[in-house]
Design a binder for these strands. Structure first.
Lengths: 232, 232
DNA sequence: ATTTCCGGCATAACATTGTTATGAAAGGAT
DNA sequence: ATCCTTTCATAACAATGTTATGCCGGAAAT
């Protein structure tokens, strides 16, 4: 037995979780079924129940993993000299990650219900509230970036937490509309909508329009143009 | 037979649609089932197929009706003297309507999939794209409001369509996060997040901060405080 | 006025889903 | 060596969307 096979046979929980994320990305939440998942990993459907308690528990773990990956993606942005550049780059990284994993992103925010058993009476979504600490961690990264900008611009009129929540609202809404296809056929929606939107918010936080424009040009120069969606 | 009964017996399609919206608001998308719907209107499940072709067709019509109601709610805002006041009031009406019908709002944006057959492989959401003209109508109302502000402030740097799309992104994201419970326990989230967010965008469009602040105070004075969610 | 035809819908069956009951097998603890 | 716990395969169950079938009633045609 090769080591690859040994790691493949072991850790059935991880295999289930990764297979579930793969199926979700490939064929959407409707394909996230117990029998298909069991076939994918070469086991029976009972494995889902022993390791996750059911499809609901599995989806909860998928959401957690989604927030972990989002947090990692945002951590990868190295803080540079200009906090405004960092904040804008953070927003772009957030958008890039969401559009690389659109199905996962929608599932994270309860935007989709795989078996019809989810997203029910209670509208509260695990992850954005206090339920999943991984969600708070990703938000905390945004709060620190906003705080640095406000400190650099001597802005004290607003709490960083409040301003960060506004940033998240704007980017979140933009991302969902772009995923939904609302911006299809209008050129590069990032350049057309997201960058102006972020600019307005950064200026509203306290940065000067001139400085923000310089930061936007700096980021746009380092950014590849006309990328395509990788996930099916 | 009283006239009320006659109208109740007739128009089975409308009865199905209204019952579906009622069930959705009361018990969530998971309760949107063919058998329950048939029981609710006193018919068999076949009625769903004769009138809508299946549950998918019914959901499409629910989404259309949702955009119609959203459009009506936004039409009810009478244009006043100040376009900035109008735009802010439009945003608040949008938010109020969404939080009065949170389940419907999420369904409209493909945010939820009742039955697991929706929101599948294709991420494009009917309504925000070109599929449903009712969705375009609601967005058009926002474009005109933004256009008036930009005309009043002599702003020509940006297209109204682009600025309106940024507004929609921001409000849409805020609404979804508020529905998801992200702002729970932080006081009035409208005052704390939505109003500052709208303020930054209005200023970014070209209005002066002072004038915008006056408009915000004017609207806040006319707005009832600490409203509760009406839908279960 | 009778006949014909067609749309609307109830009944019942079907395929597919999540779930659970049962038991076997494997591995470690005593 | 024995027992106990965990893990999971098999199979059955409940509930879902869907479809096949046929009845019924009214409208149109003769």
């Amino acid at each position: 037995m090769s080591p690859r096979e040994s790691t493949a046979k072991a850790h059935p929980r991880s295999r289930l979780l990764e297979a579930a994320i793969r199926i979700l990305a490939a064929d959407g939440p409707e394909a996230l079924q117990a029998r298909r998942l069991a076939t994918e990993v070469g086991m029976s459907t009972m494995a889902v129940y022993t390791h996750f308690g059911g499809m609901g528990g599995l989806i909860t773990e998928i959401v957690r993993e989604g927030f972990i990956r989002l947090g990692r993606r945002m951590e990868e942005i190295p803080p540079g000299d200009d906090p405004v550049v960092d904040l804008l780059a953070l927003g772009l990284a957030y958008r890039d990650h969401a559009l690389d994993n659109p199905q996962l992103y929608r599932l994270m925010f309860g935007v989709v219900s795989p078996g019809g058993r989810q997203g029910g009476k209670d509208l509260t979504v695990a992850g954005v509230g206090n339920d999943l600490p991984e969600g708070q961690a990703a938000f905390a990264r945004l709060v620190t970036a906003v705080t640095r900008v406000m400190e650099a611009t001597d802005t004290r009129e607003e709490e960083p937490h409040s301003a960060a929540a506004q940033f998240w609202s704007a980017i979140h809404g933009y991302v969902l509309l772009e995923i939904a296809g609302f911006f299809d056929g209008d050129g590069d929606p990032v350049e057309r909508y997201l960058v102006p939107l972020g600019t307005k918010l950064v200026v509203g936080i306290g940065a000067t329009p001139e400085h923000t424009a310089r930061c936007v040009r700096q980021i746009a120069a380092a950014r590849p143009r006309a990328e395509s969606i990788t996930e099916a």
